[in-house]
């Protein structure tokens, strides 16, 4: 499970090809909804902060592999059997914020990024 503790573990075991990247200030996130961020490599990430999950921050790819558009941060967040998900705003498929799989079609999944807060900044662990 991607918790803060897990993220810290990632940090301690981060290899040279992985590094923590600053994305934005935490106060730029909007509770229970998503924002999009652009990485240096051109990839887009959807970042969510869930009030009912102790303000945990989740980051997944912003690209909806079914609708083929960069829209996932605009989906509604919620849960399926208490697993946090974001529903694609195009065709409503729920994607797990924990492991990125499409809950209704497990053959499809999106990438997930470990997150942490460092000095008031939201950081993602990026593999180069």
């Amino acid at each position: 499970m991607t918790t803060l503790a897990y993220a810290d573990e990632q940090l301690s075991t981060a290899t040279q090809s992985q590094r923590w990247v600053d994305i934005c200030r935490q106060d730029q996130l909007i509770e229970d909804t998503g924002v999009a961020a652009l990485l240096e490599n051109g990839k887009q990430v959807a970042i969510f902060q869930l009030a009912l999950k102790a303000q945990q921050i989740y980051a997944v790819s912003n690209f909806d592999p079914i609708g083929q558009a960069n829209v996932l941060y605009r989906g509604i967040v919620g849960c399926v059997n208490s697993e946090p998900v974001v529903a694609s705003p195009l065709f409503k498929q729920p994607f797990s914020l924990i492991d990125g799989r499409c809950v209704t079609d497990e053959s499809i999944s999106i990438s997930v990024y470990p997150t942490r807060i460092n000095d008031g900044k939201v950081q993602l662990l990026i593999s180069d």
């Binding site: 558009a69 605009r74 967040v77």
Partner: peptide, 22 residues
Amino acid sequence: DKKHQPLQDTNDTFLANMQKDG
């Protein structure tokens, strides 16, 4: 409003109709 915005479908969130390409 801050408390209602996370509840809205994307069309309502941005007060416009999303098309297939976003």
